[in-house]
Design a protein around this nucleic acid. Structure first.
Lengths: 239, 239
DNA sequence: CTAGATAAAGTCAAAATGACTTTTAGAAGG
DNA sequence: CCTTCTAAAAGTCATTTTGACTTTATCTAG
């Protein structure tokens, strides 16, 4: 059938986390690797590589993630397949690569421990320079999806630990959306949504009234991908 | 580099249209082709084929559409890349195919004229039997996306002609969503949205008060794909 | 001129949203 | 033990949005 006369297939991953900036505020960051080869040598790029013959697409993305940061994804979703003819300008048509891109969330607590070397580093999502290939566009789209999905799913969990306060949850929303939210209205929204439940425990040791600790209701999906959900057996509409 | 030791790449397309059923009500339909080869021989499947070396992904999808129905898409969007190892059960790993699937809308006026032969036919979207490969899942996901997108974009335009009445527009929504909508509230919603403008003309020849003809405001995007929009130069938030 | 039909406009209560205010429960320090 | 600081948690209120429904307008057909 198709011999070598077919575009190559690669899988790349946009890896998001939240990290505190110098002022201590959580900001959205993503992991990039420095290219050490011909096209765009020296520029930063999304982690990725060719798809193995017997490897699922999402497994390949998780492998990207593990090999780049040493971490497991808290959330992993396919973003888009990029396959324009001019993705690698100046290159021969024979070198054409179609990239299936995933995006992932890793916990902000774990992210610090992850490798941060000469050639692998975290970058603030809103302060990126020119990246290799069409990776600026890819990141832009991943950011757009992240911000959109956050609003109608329990995606924020991907950045948090098992238990968290509403203030921490709100901080995630504020960092991703890039704007402040009213604490009272945020509480009302979260409680009405029902995806989060109080544990009865409190976070002690603050210099103010100790906040309630919450956790996500595990019976509710992390995000709604419709029929593609891993546990798509029972499909539930939100009342 | 990667020799023949790589999964093959194919592009398939879920082609939607609206057609009147025997009672004259518009219902959602999709185009399928009958397989005439070994895996799943005789079953119906989504139109598709291998990706050419110098063909854009969306061009390949549009070619699927043209070769299958003879039509141009009114709307075309990438759906998902399907690449599980078990997509073609019983087959050798060497035969692995990763399918990048698009979904398209074609006008209901044109759809009737399109070919409808022994091996190419329209099927009601809600009455499908077992399809080849994982195509049932793909169609389910495409339906889910269509229904979701309809609610916050001017997608319905893909089924309609240049000018249309609000009743026709509402009929599209009702057919896709599968439920009736209140005419008054629908009018209010559409007018508030602002994507549709009155032409000043009326549709005459009805046996009742002649309805206003509307058209889509062409300065507003057909749908919001964020940074991936074809005309992503100017990004506008809805007020 | 009347009947039939749908367009188009209007009404109204309930629910959701955004901007605020008030009260509560701890820590820290005199 | 009393005051202060701080954020949690609860409450208020006007505006906007939504869903269900009613009324009026305007055409064709007979």
């Amino acid at each position: 059938m198709a011999l070598s006369e077919a575009p190559a297939l690669a899988v790349s991953t946009v890896i998001f986390t939240l990290r505190p900036d110098s002022a201590g505020n959580m900001k959205l960051a993503l992991a990039l690797v420095r290219r050490i080869r011909k096209p765009f040598d020296g520029l930063w790029a999304l982690p990725g590589g060719p798809l193995s013959m017997n490897e699922d697409l999402s497994d390949a993305a998780a492998r990207n993630l593990r090999e780049t940061t040493g971490l497991q994804p808290r959330y992993l979703e396919q973003l888009y397949a990029f396959g324009s003819l001019d993705r690698s300008p100046g290159s021969n048509t024979k070198d054409r690569v179609v990239s299936i891109v995933y995006w992932a969330l890793v916990g902000s607590d774990e992210a610090e421990a992850a490798i941060d070397s000469e050639n692998v580093s975290w970058f603030w999502a809103d302060e990126l320079n020119k990246l290799a290939f069409d990776h600026n566009l890819i990141v832009e789209y991943a950011l757009w999806r992240l911000r959109n999905k956050l609003e109608y799913s329990r995606l924020a969990h991907g950045f948090l630990g098992e238990r968290f306060t509403l203030a921490q949850l709100r901080e995630v929303y504020e960092a991703v959306l890039g704007r402040e939210l009213d604490p009272g209205n945020f509480r009302r929204m979260v409680e009405a949504n029902g995806a989060v439940v109080a544990t009865g425990e409190r976070l002690e040791g603050t210099r103010h009234r100790p906040p309630q600790l919450y956790r996500y209701d595990s019976s509710i999906d992390l995000t709604d991908q419709g029929p593609l959900n891993p546990n798509s057996a029972k499909q539930e509409k939100k009342k």
